[in-house]
Design a protein around this nucleic acid. Structure first.
Lengths: 210, 210
DNA sequence: CGGCCCATTGACAGGCATCAAGTCCGGTGG
DNA sequence: CCACCGGACTTGATGCCTGTCAATGGGCCG
């Protein structure tokens, strides 16, 4: 398993790869590095004492994760797909943060990238009804997923979506089927999907009844 | 758990009062000020398009809320009890943030105060089972609630707890009754409670009891 | 080819949201 | 001081949602 212990002090924007399922950092490790995603998708995972597994957020290219917002990382970051990333030492990250504040007057844009999805997930799983949560989830990610031939490349397993939505994989499957039957989405192939009726998707997500 | 030492950012800042239910700032307003709680309890509220209401977090004395983590506030902050607070202009807040970084090497302790409870709420409401969520919630707040005569002063309405836990007030009521019958907590008076068996509370919160 | 993981579907039970009614409490105004 | 009122809490009854278990099929990789 990958452990960020041997990362050079001055990475100088060297891109590193991480394979499918590999951990970038682990919950509880000291926040020595900030990880910037260059390509691929990552997930933030928390394990409960009882063994339950939750996904706090999905992260996309451009996001910075592992911010030293506490003494140690609050979740484990794993690569969902194969991933490319750059890691920044904490000191250098601080430095660039302060610099961006001086130059642009904006201190925290990079903090959004991690905190905002976590906040949004809290709102999403606080909603009632499986379809509502599922649609709200789609709305929150489809714009960040890559597109190909008019289809959205959708490399998230239903198991992961279930862990994100605090539900069961079976329920996710049934929800997807229902959305297909409602002609809201289509899934021509595995890991591909098309949004047929975005307005309806948003309507369901906002709580309108079927 | 994060426990900030109560140190006002700016000694000259004027304390202001806010009454029961009053809003400190509203979702969507530009983030011009950071609010520092001096006394009382506040809640972060989000309203859905359908009218549902969620509480993202409760905030306690010493917490700084309304951080400019985005262009505009992501939730409305309301006083749960009567509250005293200080508000800092964004520029002055930035300044003290950078100063604390230079002097202590810690840039972000104050950011924890807002982000950490939001993160924790996501984990809590992702758990399965009403009792589990309820106990996890108690664990996360009882150490920050004031104490009096060995009893915890507990000024949160069940309606608010329900909005926080993404459940119904009736379920919260039933869950509380169950915990009383299990001799885990006692509630001698309204707005007062005693934790009789903290180990059990934590056991339930960690998922031991089905 | 065989093993494994994921997706799918059905059956079923249980949890919890919802509705409804009743009680208690604090606040307000007469 | 008391009557009134609205909001919060409590409790019961009911039905739906969805979590769980089980079995099957399909795709991927060694």
């Amino acid at each position: 398993m990958y452990r960020p212990a041997f990362v050079p002090i001055h990475p100088d924007a060297i891109e590193r790869p991480a394979g499918h399922g590999e951990a970038l950092f682990r919950e509880g490790d000291p926040c020595d590095y900030v990880f910037e995603l260059c390509g691929g998708i990552a997930r933030g995972v928390s394990f409960m004492a009882s063994g339950e597994r939750q996904i706090s957020a999905f992260f996309f290219p451009g996001d910075q994760i592992g911010l030293p917002v506490a003494e140690s990382y609050r979740f484990t970051a794993e690569a969902v797909t194969d991933v490319r990333y750059v890691c920044h030492s904490r000191a250098r990250w601080h430095e660039s943060l302060v610099r961006s504040w001086r130059e642009e007057g904006r201190l925290l844009p990079s903090i959004c990238a991690e905190q905002d999805p976590i906040f949004r997930r809290g709102i999403i799983i606080g909603r009632h009804g499986l379809l509502v949560r599922l649609c709200a989830f789609f709305i929150s990610v489809i714009d960040r997923l890559p597109e190909e031939d008019g289809m959205i490349v959708y490399p998230l397993s239903q198991v992961d979506v279930a862990a994100y939505l605090a539900t069961s994989p079976e329920s996710v499957c049934r929800g997807l089927r229902q959305l297909r039957e409602m002609r809201v989405i289509a899934a021509p192939e595995r890991e591909r999907m098309v949004v047929l009726d975005r307005a309806r998707l948003e309507a369901i997500a906002s709580g309108a009844h079927s």
